[in-house]
């Protein structure tokens, strides 16, 4: 039996979170979205027994979090034997070359910069939705 992919969104800005969710829904992606607004609670959830029981995951990650950097979460996820197969999409305002490189080095699967221009932003999210609809996420063992 295959489980639907669950989307874990780590985003401290509620406005951004809402906009992302809206645009994902507009792209006809109806998967469950679990939102965390700080790194600590997101990590607690990711490393809990519940995640193991509930199948595949996709992580949407912001880099500027109040309690830690998104790269810390990325590092922990990608160094964990079970979680490292989960695709991670970094979605953040930072378009710094060094930062992007660092994320890919740590094993991030997609890096998307949030454009200030709303049309581009919405477009990017919808394309992400399109991407998510055809993407196959592995089971978490």
């Amino acid at each position: 039996m295959t489980h639907p992919v669950k989307i874990v969104m780590v985003e401290d800005d509620h406005g951004h979170a809402k906009l992302i969710e809206k645009n994902i829904r507009r792209a006809n992606i109806n998967n469950e979205i679990k939102h965390f607004d700080d790194g600590g609670s997101a990590l607690d959830y990711l490393f809990s027994a519940e995640v193991l029981a509930n199948g595949p995951l996709l992580i949407l990650l912001d880099l500027n979090l109040p309690d830690m950097s998104g790269t810390d979460i990325l590092e922990k996820v990608k160094s964990d034997d079970r979680l490292r197969r989960a695709p991670v999409v970094v979605l953040t305002t930072t378009d710094d070359k060094v930062e992007i490189q660092r994320c890919y080095d740590l094993g991030c699967n997609v890096y998307i910069t949030k454009p200030v221009d709303y049309e581009s932003f919405a477009g990017a999210i919808r394309q992400l939705g399109l991407f998510l609809s055809v993407m196959q996420a592995p089971e978490i063992e």
Partner: peptide, 21 residues
């Protein structure tokens, strides 16, 4: 300069996004 640029950008995304909404 780097931090200011990025931290100022985040709220702008909201302003622009919700203006469109």
């Amino acid at each position: 300069a780097y931090i200011v640029s990025h931290d100022l950008r985040a709220p702008l995304v909201n302003v622009m996004g919700y203006t469109s909404e």
